[in-house]
């Protein structure tokens, strides 16, 4: 173990959130809850990126009074990456929910095991 576990508490929280999301994704049989788990994992990644870009005592990267010194502002690159990630996660959530609606119309259940059993029966 390295020594920075408690100093990096934001990243620790992000990793625990990631684990919670992954557990939700694996353990729940309801499709909607699986999608919620995936969204929790997304949020954990954003938290991790945002905490990576933070520098203590510095300002948000918006130029005030024409001061363009690196010592004044935080790192702008992770902020841009988080923006990209949010857009992609919104699209993916919408697509997954649409597919779930189609599955519900076909099998009248959201339970994944039930859907698998029914589809296997139809395949015989």
């Amino acid at each position: 173990m390295g020594g920075n576990l408690f100093a990096n508490y934001e990243e620790v929280v992000a990793m625990i959130l990631f684990g919670i999301g992954f557990t939700t994704l694996l353990l729940h049989r309801n499709m909607i809850k699986k999608i919620i788990g995936l969204n929790i994992m997304d949020s954990a990644v954003y938290l991790f990126l945002a905490s990576k870009g933070y520098i203590e005592g510095r300002l948000a990267p918006i130029v005030v009074n024409n001061v363009t010194d690196m010592e004044v502002y935080i790192n702008p690159v992770p902020s841009g990456l988080v923006l990209t990630g949010i857009v992609v996660s919104v699209s993916v959530s919408a697509l997954m929910l649409a597919l779930t609606i189609r599955l519900y119309r076909r099998y009248h259940t959201l339970d994944l095991d039930e859907i698998i059993i029914q589809s296997k029966k139809e395949g015989k």
Binding site: M1, G2, G3, N4, L5, A7, N8, E10, E11, V12, M15, S51, K52, G53, Y54, I55, E56, G57, R58, P61, T68, D69, M70, E71, Y73, N75, P76, V77, P78
Partner: peptide, 24 residues
């Protein structure tokens, strides 16, 4: 995470010449 550098430190490797160029 416990081996990663501390949060908020200006000398972290992710604050490299890319962000310097963008800001300056």
């Amino acid at each position: 995470v416990s081996y990663l550098p501390k949060i908020g430190n200006p000398d972290n490797p992710d604050n490299n010449e890319v962000s310097k160029r963008y800001i300056e």
